[in-house]
């Protein structure tokens, strides 16, 4: 007799648990058009805003005079764990006759970057910053190597110094 009771109670509890599950999916079926959180990516490209902190790529901000802050000190290159930064600099002699490094090219290979942020964190002159761009796919690998400083850009002169 107990076996029979167990048989039927087990069956009914099972059916009730199944109905509960169907209730959840059924509820979402009818409320879905409202509750969907999916973003329609290529369509919403214009309105899509990433968070300020988003680590899209490493960039070098330039001001309106096409000047950047990089002093070509190579600390970012040393700190990069993957060797994705290469700084090409040239020695220039300034008016006072002192030898100084000047940035020629800040090469950044995004294909090797692991977005750890050490270059940006350790930069003594805050020359680097995170960019929001995230559509990085390219057809060939050599396009991953980006030159961060603009063509013909110069070092920003610090105010009050010199």
């Amino acid at each position: 007799m107990r076996g029979l009771i167990n048989y039927f109670s087990g069956m009914f509890n099972g059916i009730i648990s199944l109905l509960k599950g169907m209730g959840v999916t059924g509820k979402y079926f009818f409320t879905s058009p409202v509750t969907i959180v999916t973003q329609q990516y290529p369509e919403n490209r214009k309105t899509l805003e990433m968070f300020d902190a988003f680590k899209g790529e490493v960039t070098m901000p330039h001001d309106e005079n096409n000047e950047h802050k990089c002093t070509a000190c190579s600390i970012c290159q040393i700190n990069c764990p993957n060797g994705s930064i290469e700084i090409v600099s040239r020695d220039v002699v300034n008016d006072e006759g002192k030898k100084r490094k000047e940035l020629d090219k800040h090469l950044y290979n995004i294909g090797m970057c692991s977005f750890c942020g050490l270059c940006i964190k350790t930069c003594p002159s805050n020359a680097l910053a995170w960019g929001q761009e995230f559509e990085h796919s390219m057809f060939t690998r050599d396009k991953f190597v980006k030159t961060l400083n603009n063509e013909g850009s110069k070092l920003m002169q610090k105010k009050g110094v010199e």
């Binding site: 079926f29 959180v37 329609q40």
Partner: peptide
């Protein structure tokens, strides 16, 4: 489409 709605997503579009 039905399973997409049940799973709270858009489905083929």
């Amino acid at each position: 489409k039905v399973c997409a709605f049940m799973q709270n997503r858009v489905g083929p579009n």
